[in-house]
């Protein structure tokens, strides 16, 4: 028996230490206080609206967001622009429609029901314009990266001078959070790059946080509804469980066995 315990403790120590060593190899991501985490996590509405501004003025020139529609911008649980604002945003984009009765394609101002306009016609065009690298679609980007929001938030602030032992090709940049440290995207943000409508100072840190919040929403547009329903569901289940527990005790009191 004693030997067995020894064996077990060795195994456990081994597993814990090896998982720790793996964790140690990973880069520590930058942390910030995300309002959407936790049991009652909600999006910061103002941050989402600023994030949309960063996306549309900076990211959208290369990154598509093909699963979102303009109507989503005014829906509950999102940036919650007013319907008039969302309509105005949609109308500011030219959308290709058609064919019309003459068989011709035509352009018209965007409508709420339109999907976000894509920056390039197709993947090849996107690659051609970006030195062969395809800027990934951003709709579910946060969920498609291991580190999630922390990773994106860090990556946006992770640009630095390459260490002397790293040589970079043309159009490749050094980022300390990127897998392999080499990234084809130039640092997209710089202090004061844009002017926020609500007067918030547009630092790289602030813009990173806002746009990452926006990307979290774009990946999980029903996150708030999920958290709200989850809390109700779990409270309901716990109450029911307690009631059933006492019913069970009562029923089993007729026989001697313990439950």
């Amino acid at each position: 028996m004693k030997n067995l315990h020894k064996l077990f403790s060795i195994l456990i120590i081994f597993i814990v230490s090896s998982s720790l060593s793996i964790a140690a190899e990973k880069v520590e991501y930058l942390k910030t206080d995300w309002s959407f985490k936790g049991l009652f996590g909600k999006f910061d509405r103002a941050s989402l609206q600023r994030g949309y501004q960063v996306y549309t003025e900076v990211c959208a020139s290369c990154h598509s967001m093909k699963y979102l529609s303009y109507r989503n911008l005014s829906e509950k649980g999102g940036p919650e622009f007013s319907e008039a604002q969302a309509k105005a945003i949609a109308a500011s984009f030219e959308v290709t429609d058609g064919p019309n009765s003459d068989g011709e394609m035509f352009t018209r101002p965007g409508k709420l029901s339109d999907k976000f306009v894509m920056p390039y016609d197709n993947v090849k065009a996107a690659q051609a314009a970006n030195g062969g690298a395809y800027p990934p679609d951003m709709s579910v980007l946060v969920k498609a990266r291991g580190g999630g929001v922390d990773y994106i938030y860090s990556l946006l602030q992770g640009y630095e001078e390459a260490p002397s032992n790293v040589s970079l090709d043309d159009g490749v940049y050094y980022n300390k959070y990127m897998y392999g440290n080499k990234i084809r995207m130039a640092a997209p943000l710089s202090n004061g790059l844009l002017e926020y409508g609500d007067g918030t100072s547009a630092t790289v840190e602030q813009m990173s946080k806002d746009v990452t919040t926006f990307l979290m929403w774009s990946a999980e547009p029903h996150l708030e509804a999920r958290h709200q329903m989850g809390f109700k569901a779990i409270v309901y289940l716990i109450i029911l469980t307690v009631l059933v527990y006492f019913s069970m005790k009562k029923i089993w009191s007729r026989v001697e066995s313990e439950v």
């Binding site: 999920r226 958290h227 989850g230 809390f231 779990i234 289940l237």
Partner: peptide, 10 residues
């Protein structure tokens, strides 16, 4: 189901 719900919702 409580464990299940935790995964689904959180």
């Amino acid at each position: 189901m409580i464990v299940f719900a935790f995964f689904v919702f959180y």
